[in-house]
Design a protein around this nucleic acid. Structure first.
Length: 258
DNA sequence: ATGGTAGAGCATCTA
């Protein structure tokens, strides 16, 4: 099974690139973030023509998440599970695909350490852990994939010194991510390549950051133990960050042994 | 020097 995640930064703007990538990478499951679409505008038919069922959770200008699957889509939960205070944004969607509980997440950015948005980010991550308790069990196949807006370690940013005092690297954010992992999830890419350096998934559009290799590894596939033990390889497709009208994020995928 | 670019939509907001 090939399981992928990609923050597309507007599905409307990115549709040609997404269709091209689906045809060439042929993931079984693709989690999308930042579709920036309302549900009614989601191009369900275009994905159906490529063999993908899809579920989308979005309300318009900002955020918006989806799961595309060619191994089925069942038990859909849009947003947080019942019993958890509803999100005002559309930042997560969960479905069962080919026997795997898949959640596509777009974790809040946080903006700055003194911002209400930063406190919202930390609270949101705590709710995500409670959501997992409600929808899945860690001894079953679970994948939580998406843009976490957190670089797990200093080596996951191009220059740790440039990020001192910023979001994405702060201790509380990293603790919140570790709390999520302690539920029973492993960072598939880091697990497969424990020593890999300078392999980023996001590069700011500004100042030629991509071409200067100034990136961050913030797009993650977190897998429960039954899946983490099956990772054959993991890949960041940097080619998808090149060329005409790229997203500022590259797709990341893992291949799981049968 | 708080810059730079891209995408939302049409004045700014978000990243």
């Amino acid at each position: 099974m090939r399981l992928a995640t990609w923050n597309v930064n507007s599905l409307k703007a990115r549709m040609p690139r997404v269709e091209e990538w689906l045809a060439y990478a042929r993931p079984d499951v693709l989690c999308l973030q930042e579709t920036k679409l309302a549900d009614a505008a989601f191009p369900q038919l275009a994905f159906s023509a490529l063999g993908y069922e899809a579920v989308h959770h979005g309300d318009g200008r900002w955020n918006g998440v989806a799961i595309l699957s060619r191994v089925g889509v069942e038990d859909v939960v849009a947003g947080f599970a019942d019993g958890i205070e509803a999100d005002t944004d559309t930042r997560l969607v969960t479905a069962r695909c080919g026997g795997v509980s898949v959640t596509s997440v777009y974790v809040p950015n946080g903006r700055s350490l003194d911002s209400d948005h930063y406190r919202y980010k930390l609270a949101w991550l705590a709710k995500l852990r409670r959501h997992l308790d409600a929808v899945a069990a860690p001894d079953t196949p679970v994948a939580v994939c998406g843009d976490f807006n957190i670089a797990p370690e200093d080596r996951d940013v191009w220059d740790p010194a440039a990020f001192v005092g910023s979001t994405h690297v702060s201790a509380p954010e990293r603790r919140a991510l570790a709390e999520l992992e302690s539920w029973g999830l492993q960072d598939a890419f880091r697990g497969r390549y424990p020593d890999a350096e300078e392999l980023y998934t996001y590069w700011d559009y500004r100042a030629g950051d991509f071409h200067q290799h100034r990136g961050m590894r913030i797009d993650l596939l977190l897998l429960s133990a039954p899946l983490a033990g099956r990772v054959r390889w993991a890949l960041v497709d940097r080619n998808a960050r090149k060329g005409k009208q790229p997203s500022d994020h590259a797709p990341v995928f893992v291949d799981l042994e049968p």
